[in-house]
Design a protein around this nucleic acid. Structure first.
Lengths: 140, 140
DNA sequence: CGCATTCGTAACTATAATAGTTACAGATGC
DNA sequence: GCATCTGTAACTATTATAGTTACGAATGCG
């Protein structure tokens, strides 16, 4: 599992875009709210664009906006877009083939880790960007 | 979430100890099966000892063994022992206090991440070291 | 057209976590 | 006494992430 804050930042970014509605928001503006560098934001926006969660436009008056309604974007979508594969890691070195435990442990652990990752994704799938926005602005 | 293999290695270690039954296993033997250095194993055994999952004895004929029955040690116990706190991370820098989203996003995300970590632990709690051993050695 | 704006991305640096390695004090049992 | 084994310190190597500067290309506007 990554020791990254990309997921947290990505949720923040999409919440800002949802907040802005149809107005495109540029990376510099987002960077101020997140309190980081605009390139870091553009890298994350790029990943979100590849996952079809946002659209971006270069040029004057450009920026990014949600590619679909905020209640159709789940945290699982965001997680997959910025964290990619599985979170829980296997051994680095292959365990010994000489040992009965070493030979089989990878397969057995693999099953456990897949189940765990599935649980993470199921949990994240229950919350949408619209839910996050609603909690930030309880009274619209 | 850590980018470590400590959890995988720790499960491997406890599986070996369960396999060995009452025979103490020394760190050098474990290191061969895991295919790493004995100090790395001792560091993990030390964490498992602090969590009361194993007991270790120095001296000739010493080594480590399970502190309780393999069916009373869950993967959640192991996870907590070697990975410590929460897996899913927040922002590094505090978001801007000037922005309504920045002000509140940490609280909202914090709730989501707590829920997600709870789901991870619930999933891991369903499997014991004995279950792992049974899958490795289906016919006892 | 010319120009300011903005994205996408490369290249580099800085920081931090992890694993691996050597070394050694202290406990243990024969 | 002595070989064995744990616990831990100290150091290096590797890797991931974030941050920063820079620049080409797309865009829209006067």
């Amino acid at each position: 599992m990554p020791t990254s804050s990309r997921f947290a930042v990505a949720v923040h970014v999409l919440t800002l875009l949802a907040w802005a509605g149809d107005e495109p928001v540029n990376s510099a503006t987002v960077a101020v709210s997140v309190n980081t560098n605009a390139v870091v934001i553009r890298r994350i926006l790029c990943a979100l664009g590849r996952a079809r969660l946002v659209t971006s436009q270069p040029g004057a008056g450009g920026g990014s906006r949600l590619a679909r309604r905020a209640d159709r974007i789940t945290l699982r979508d965001i997680y997959r877009a910025v964290e990619g594969g599985d979170s829980f890691l296997m051994h680095r070195q292959r365990p010994s083939r000489r040992c009965p435990v070493g030979v089989n442990i990878e397969d057995v652990l693999g099953g456990v880790l897949r189940t765990t990752n599935a649980a993470v994704e199921q949990t994240l799938a229950r919350t949408t960007v619209a839910d996050i926005v609603a909690q930030i602005r309880p009274c619209t």
